[in-house]
Amino acid sequence: MREETKFKAWVVREKEDKTFSRALEDKAVSELPEGEVLIKASFAGLNFKDALSATGNKGVTRNYPHTPGIDVSGVVAESSDNRFKVGDNVLVTGYDLGMNTDGGFGEYVRVPAGWVIPLPDGLSLDEAMIMGTGAFTAALMVRKLIMNDVRPEDGDVVVTGATGGVGSMAVAILSKLGYSVFASTGKQEAHEFLKSLGAKDCVDRSEIRDESGRPMLRTRWAAGVDTVGGETLTSLLKTVHAKGSVTCCGLVESPKLEMTVFPFILRGVNLLGVDSAETKMELRKEIWSKLSGDWKPENLQTMVNYVKLEDLDPYFGKILKGEIQGRIVVKY
């Protein structure tokens, strides 16, 4: 691959007045960061963090110009690491990809070999991105529930923010593993979609969110998967059965957790945080092995909307507003 080879990529730029612009630009392979593996992208998934980067959030991306995209799957175009050869199908999610290292919303990415995972048997390149960080994070959350002895026979498990990338994948994975799953959403029109993923029923997000300020509430759930944070997470922790667990990974509602310790010390409730970006490679491979096998959601194609790279721009705003159902995947 010649270093002057040109390709298309979304580039976000910081302007003199500290506002940000983004446009589809021509770049050269020589402009990519250093790394042992050059990948020609086949698919890239859109995530909430990508939209933050694309709108100039310095908590996600410190330096601009920048190309977002924390998920990518594709074919190795060059490799100086003997673990990978030209033509290998691979995927990359998390680490610094799309944050401060140019990411998947360009036709080529170059990354350290230590970030790259060979595409597991049982997965196609597009399936890997339909799942992407959403399914990877959801699987980490489900794994933590299982490690804390949450079993299907224990009762109902609720998933908040259920129409989003992580939430919808959590519904699908939990239901496939035999759990009774209730999907929490504010979108009445999404109920049939969520039931098609395996949800036993849907509950309005207002039923989860309690603003009474009471330190404890009547128990309802064996466990919870929370993707939104804020008062929703607070309320969920107050309604989980004794010795139950809640996994959390998001803050779209709020990063604040304002509550007493009573659910933790009187009911023994567990709050289990998940950070998928820095997951160690051994665990990454374990999770992707599960996602290509027994944990692989059914009917993945019903969960995705494919878009062309040049048509991606409107979706940054939509995902920030919670207007995305399932997964948006760029198809190169």
Rank of each mutant, 00 (worst) to 15 (best):
T232W: 10
K49S: 13
T239E: 07
A162D: 01
S254C: 15
G213C: 07
A183Y: 10
P297I: 08
I265R: 10
I39L: 04
A139E: 03
P68D: 02
T137F: 02
G164W: 07
D71L: 10
N100G: 02
D88K: 09
A277I: 07
M141P: 11
M147D: 15
R13E: 13
G293M: 07
R214Y: 12
D71I: 14
V92F: 04
D50N: 11
E78H: 12
D96Q: 14
L266C: 12
A172K: 05
S124L: 12
D311P: 05
E286Y: 09
L97Q: 00
A222Y: 09
V307C: 03
Q301V: 06
R83F: 09
W288H: 02
K58Y: 08
C248Y: 13
E278Y: 08
D88L: 12
M131G: 04
G198Y: 00
L320M: 13
E3L: 14
K18D: 08
V12T: 11
V12G: 00
S289F: 06
L97A: 10
S235Q: 06
H191W: 15
M259Q: 05
R110E: 02
E78F: 06
L309P: 04
G98C: 04
D121G: 02
L272I: 05
E323W: 05
E211K: 11
E25L: 13
D50P: 06
L32Q: 01
K144D: 02
A113Y: 05
C249I: 10
L272F: 00
N270L: 10
T101E: 04
V11D: 00
K280C: 10
I319Y: 00
D121C: 06
S276N: 07
P314F: 07
R205P: 03
Q188R: 15
A170F: 08
D126H: 02
L309Q: 00
G56A: 04
G213F: 13
L91S: 01
G103W: 01
L46V: 14
K187C: 06
D50H: 05
V274Q: 12
L145H: 00
L197S: 07
